[in-house]
């Protein structure tokens, strides 16, 4: 099977701090990581390859340093990796990004299954996956927790709201992955060394036949007007009485007072 995984390098949003003076995000010194949902997607893809045979290709659109997460992908089961990068791609919203990615994917060849993480933890939009499927005119299933493939049929378990749906679709299909029951594997010393020796090729705008009005800021229908740090919750009330019983009673008292209950 020809499997593709779309990944993104994101800041570790759990490490982001707010500058109390300027009330802005401190982005320097925040480590960059492989988007956690993409890590689950990659693990699912590699397991599918291990069961059904084939190759796993990792692709990412980003600046040069995004090669670090592609290297990570190579050390945990991806067979090859490509970076899609060019200054003129800068400022692209999800529509422009998915357009560029779809052009790069078409250039690489035909894929049976395309995996994406359900959303990136910086943008949090969950839009690129389905938009990519639309550009490529292939079927999509979102929030996938499990997948099996037999010949051209894919059977997926979709986790949505409070239930699961078992869905059947045919290749080619794009799947966006939520959290899987299994954790992504560790690299091994050997796989890390091999990954370091593998070349990651960059695809630039010169390699693609793009409509320039559909990329970058120009190609982005959504525009960011402003950003601000949300109002922080004010300090809460601490209850610690002599016994658990008394604490519970005090809690109910204050909740009644504040009309919460």
């Amino acid at each position: 099977m020809n499997i593709l995984v779309c990944v993104k390098q994101v800041p570790d949003t759990t490490e982001i701090k707010i500058d109390p003076h300027s009330n802005t995000l401190i982005r320097t010194g925040v480590p960059s990581i492989l988007n956690p949902f993409d890590a689950y997607a990659l693990e699912m893809a590699v397991r599918l390859k291990e069961k059904n045979g084939g190759t796993v290709t990792a692709i990412s659109m980003g600046p040069e340093q995004a090669k670090n997460v592609l290297k990570e992908c190579l050390s945990v089961g991806a067979d090859q990796a490509f970076l899609v990068s060019d200054r003129i791609f800068g400022g692209s919203d999800t529509l422009a990004t998915s357009y560029i990615l779809s052009a790069a994917i078409c250039k690489l060849g035909e894929f049976d299954v395309i995996f994406c993480g359900k959303q990136a933890i910086d943008g949090d939009t969950a839009q690129v996956g389905p938009e990519l499927a639309e550009h490529l005119d292939i079927a999509q299933v979102t929030y996938v927790a499990e997948v099996e493939a037999t010949d051209r049929i894919l059977t997926v378990l979709r986790e949505i709201d409070e239930r699961y749906e078992k869905i059947e679709t045919q290749i080619p299909t794009l799947l966006t992955v939520n959290k899987t029951a299994f954790e992504p594997r560790y690299p091994t010393v050997k796989s890390k060394l091999t990954a370091n020796r593998t070349t990651i090729n960059t695809i630039t705008s010169a390699d693609l036949d793009l409509d320039l009005t559909r990329i970058g800021l120009k190609g982005s229908p959504t525009k960011v007007k402003k950003t601000f740090v949300p109002v922080q919750r004010k300090k809460g009330l601490r209850i610690m009485e002599n016994s658990g019983r008394q604490s519970a009673i005090r809690l109910v008292e204050v909740l009644l007072d504040a009309k919460i209950i």
Binding site: Y186, P187, T188, V189, K190, L193
Partner: peptide, 22 residues
């Protein structure tokens, strides 16, 4: 078992013998 999976037991074993040759 997990350390073996990662290859921590054969860091300096030569590559031609199946190690990482570090």
């Amino acid at each position: 078992k997990k350390a073996v999976e990662m290859g921590l037991h054969i860091l300096s074993v030569p590559e031609e013998h199946g190690g990482s040759g570090l």
